[in-house]
Simulated assay, not measured.
Amino acid sequence: MKIATGLEVLMNDSQLQKEFKGNVALLCHNASIDAHYGHAALRFKTLFGTRFVKLFGPQHGFSTDAQDNMIETAHVEHPFFKIPVYSLYSETRVPTDAMLDGIDHFFVDLQDVGCRMYTYIYTLTLLLEKCMDKDIEVIVLDRPNPLNGTTLEGNVLDPKYASFIGRHPIPVRHGMTLGELGNMHQRFWAGKSIKYRVIKMRHWDRSMFFEDTKLPWLLPSPNLARFESALTFPTTVLFEGTQLSEGRGTTQSLEIVGHPKIEPYALYEGHLKRALEKTGLEGVALRPITFLPTFQKHRDQVCGGFQIHVTDKKKFEPWRVGQWLMRELFYLMEGDFKWLQPPYEYDYVNLPIDIINGTDRLRHWVEQNESMEMLESFEDFEAYRHRFESIKLY
């Protein structure tokens, strides 16, 4: 049966709509659409009329046009809707009292990518914390986890490395929808309950990847234009913590990695091809490429590198592939491989790679060239698994 997102469930249920009697606000972005490509804000204007009083945007903005970390967006009045659009990636990550004034129901409709390093889940949890002492109901219009809702992968965050790309003790592939993440926050981290509900999807199965849903994919952030980019995101996002390009400034961002000092064919034929076979990692192929970034790292410099092709998404383990490839390139590139230096996501002390990984142990694993078996020691999931099973909605 056709999957209906939380937005579509709301729009098609007149009885449900009657439960929201006061003023409403909407946190959304470019990918907040229905199955007919209608934007959530347009639907809200039709549904709530003058009671639709405020819009909010997450990182990358309401229009999803702001690039990269630490690129803030401004508060504006929308020229069509004639209501304020507040940025929650501006001088504040937390909505202020003034922003929340006059709101009875705060809807959240964001397409997440199922990876701990993606900030939209923390925009939600900061909103929940802010609303603890307010008479505001927070409602998530749920959407699919594009990496499926069953597979868990990667280390659990060490709280010492908490940041806006990792606030909570969850693994890299956390398996939750946005609504479920809100459930976990309320049950285990909030300390105080608020008015919170999830308008669930209909007919979504946890085993589904996004392409299995047959829903339209619109980029949820500027460099994830394709579903394939979301699949490889847990691999390539790791390279944001290095001086290697993760493909920003190309048409295949977050599917490729490279550097001006890499000769890709020599590295692939001379070492990486056989090394990948020895790891036992499945569902992935590396292809030697050259590319020219038009902005960000190595702008206007030809880079050699590799495209990560997912040949079997059910067997593909993106976090392991990324850690392995980083370790190999650290040694193959010798002194040309360098860690990116602070600041990163407003942390001026810790190395960006440690913030991204949520631990410094993985960096040490790379530097010490330890065996692949060491990766298994980072996966103490039991506490998380217990929580995960307790908050599932589907």
Score class of each variant (00 low, 15 high):
residue 258 G to L: 06
residue 219 L to E: 10
residue 275 A to Q: 05
residue 27 L to N: 00
residue 31 A to V: 04
residue 117 M to K: 15
residue 155 N to L: 06
residue 379 E to H: 09
residue 222 P to W: 03
residue 43 R to I: 05
residue 36 H to G: 04
residue 25 A to C: 07
residue 37 Y to Q: 13
residue 13 D to Y: 05
residue 206 R to F: 06
residue 188 F to P: 00
residue 327 R to A: 11
residue 301 Q to E: 12
residue 195 K to V: 02
residue 189 W to A: 13
residue 140 V to N: 03
residue 385 R to V: 09
residue 221 S to D: 05
residue 158 D to M: 10
residue 335 G to Q: 14
residue 76 V to M: 11
residue 255 E to K: 13
residue 194 I to M: 07
residue 333 M to E: 02
residue 210 F to T: 02
residue 146 P to A: 04
residue 80 F to C: 11
residue 244 L to I: 04
residue 339 W to L: 15
residue 300 D to F: 14
residue 279 T to N: 13
residue 150 T to R: 12
residue 370 E to W: 03
residue 285 A to I: 11
residue 375 L to C: 08
residue 318 P to F: 03
residue 289 I to W: 09
residue 346 Y to I: 06
residue 181 L to Y: 15
residue 308 I to K: 00
residue 207 S to W: 04
residue 372 M to N: 09
residue 154 G to P: 02
residue 175 G to P: 05
residue 139 I to E: 00
residue 247 G to N: 05
residue 361 R to C: 04
residue 334 E to V: 08
residue 375 L to D: 01
residue 254 L to F: 15
residue 365 W to M: 02
residue 19 E to P: 07
residue 143 R to F: 07
residue 102 G to S: 10
residue 296 Q to C: 06
residue 249 G to V: 00
residue 60 H to L: 09
residue 21 K to H: 08
residue 310 V to H: 06
residue 202 R to I: 15
residue 10 L to R: 02
residue 279 T to K: 13
residue 219 L to W: 14
residue 355 I to R: 01
residue 207 S to A: 12
residue 311 T to M: 08
residue 185 H to Y: 15
residue 306 F to V: 03
residue 4 A to D: 10
residue 193 S to D: 15
residue 329 L to Q: 02
residue 394 Y to M: 10
residue 336 D to Y: 15
residue 244 L to R: 02
residue 189 W to C: 11
residue 145 N to P: 08
residue 337 F to L: 01
residue 52 F to Y: 08
residue 198 V to H: 08
residue 109 D to M: 02
residue 23 N to E: 03
residue 163 S to D: 06
residue 304 G to A: 10
residue 280 G to I: 09
residue 37 Y to M: 14
residue 105 H to G: 00
residue 46 T to L: 12
residue 362 L to P: 06
residue 107 F to S: 01
residue 354 D to N: 15
residue 111 Q to I: 03
residue 216 P to Q: 13
residue 234 P to D: 07
residue 254 L to D: 04
residue 180 E to V: 00
residue 210 F to D: 01
residue 312 D to K: 11
residue 229 S to N: 07
residue 92 T to N: 11
residue 169 P to E: 07
residue 151 T to I: 06
residue 199 I to R: 00
residue 295 F to W: 07
residue 158 D to A: 11
residue 205 D to Q: 14
residue 319 W to A: 07
residue 332 L to W: 01
residue 198 V to L: 09
residue 282 E to S: 09
residue 244 L to S: 01
residue 175 G to L: 01
residue 77 E to G: 08
residue 327 R to P: 00
residue 131 C to H: 07
residue 371 S to C: 07
residue 243 Q to H: 12
residue 258 G to Y: 02
residue 15 Q to E: 14
residue 363 R to P: 10
residue 82 K to Q: 13
residue 297 K to L: 11
residue 73 T to F: 00
residue 119 T to R: 00
residue 188 F to C: 04
residue 191 G to Y: 01
residue 172 V to H: 08
residue 216 P to S: 13
residue 116 R to Y: 02
residue 346 Y to W: 14
residue 289 I to R: 13
residue 88 L to E: 06
